[in-house]
């Protein structure tokens, strides 16, 4: 797999609430609200693409369309010449709040994507490998409610990685974590990406996350949303805003773009 193309992607919703307020036009089925407006993006397989945007701008909608959970009103997502239009284990979604199945233990959750493997021994070894990769050894038989927020995210990462997907789609994977856990997870995801080289699409509202982690940063904005910035980030890891002055300048630029006049 070489290239991923998001082509002219648009999404409209029908706002049913407004229908009742406009008795003058009883025939229209609510007002159509356009969320995404002709999004066009191209990137290489293996890249970590961080998508930024103000909340409610439609970035999560875009992710759900790429994952195949929703259908676009217009446009399409292509991997080389194959169209992505339905959910598949090839592109695993990592949910904003936990997507772990709460009635399954950590290892049962990790097993989900490889449950059809015939060799039980090999399967068990694989589960163990990924549990260890996210440093959850000793917690294999714990239920999600017995884990901290950060451990839950890591378990979900292990579950996603165990499938060996082409792409991982992460919707605000760090939201709700405390500051230290957030910083650690950020580092872990960067390390993981360097280790396995999967394509990662990551939506965040944290500008620093995007600039520190991404091989490419995309800023969405406007209503309906379109691409305001699409920039490769060729900085070596670990990154630092003081060390890489250019990165620091870009940070201020992105802050401005999102409507904050000075970077904190």
């Amino acid at each position: 797999m070489g290239q991923i193309r998001i082509e002219n992607l648009s999404k409209e919703y029908v706002d049913r609430r407004r229908q009742k307020r406009s008795p003058t036009s009883p025939k229209t089925h609510g007002r159509r609200v356009r969320v995404l407006d002709g999004i066009h993006l191209e990137f290489d397989a293996g890249e970590m693409v961080c998508i930024l945007g103000p909340s409610g701008c439609g970035k999560s909608t875009m992710l759900r369309i790429i994952a195949g959970f929703e259908q676009p009103t217009a446009g399409a997502v292509w991997v080389d010449d194959r169209r992505l239009n339905r959910p598949s284990p090839d592109h695993i979604f990592v949910f904003q709040h936990s997507g772990l199945l709460p009635w399954m233990t950590v290892s049962q959750n990790v097993e989900l994507g490889i449950r059809h493997m015939e060799d039980e021994k090999e399967k068990a070894a694989l589960i163990q490998e990924f549990v260890e990769m996210v440093e959850l050894e000793g917690f294999e038989n714990h239920y999600p409610y017995q884990l901290s927020g950060g451990m839950q995210r890591r378990a979900e990462l292990a579950r996603a990685l165990a499938v060996n997907p082409e792409m991982m789609i992460m919707d605000e994977p760090f939201s709700g974590l405390d500051f230290l856990t957030h910083m650690k997870m950020r580092e872990e995801v960067v390390n993981m990406h360097q280790l396995i080289g999967k394509t990662i699409l990551l939506v965040t509202h944290d500008i620093d996350d995007a600039l520190i982690m991404g091989d490419r940063v995309v800023v969405l904005g406007g209503r309906p949303a379109n691409v305001k910035l699409d920039q490769r980030l060729d900085f070596s890891h670990p990154r630092n805003f003081e060390k890489d002055e250019e990165l620091g300048r870009l940070r201020e630029e992105v802050f401005l773009m999102l409507g904050v006049s000075y970077a904190v």
């Binding site: 959970f69 959910p87 949910f95 499938v163």
Partner: peptide
């Protein structure tokens, strides 16, 4: 509904 999305995601 997230659980059903997980189900679809994992085929």
């Amino acid at each position: 509904p997230v659980f059903f999305q997980v189900a679809r995601n994992f085929n």
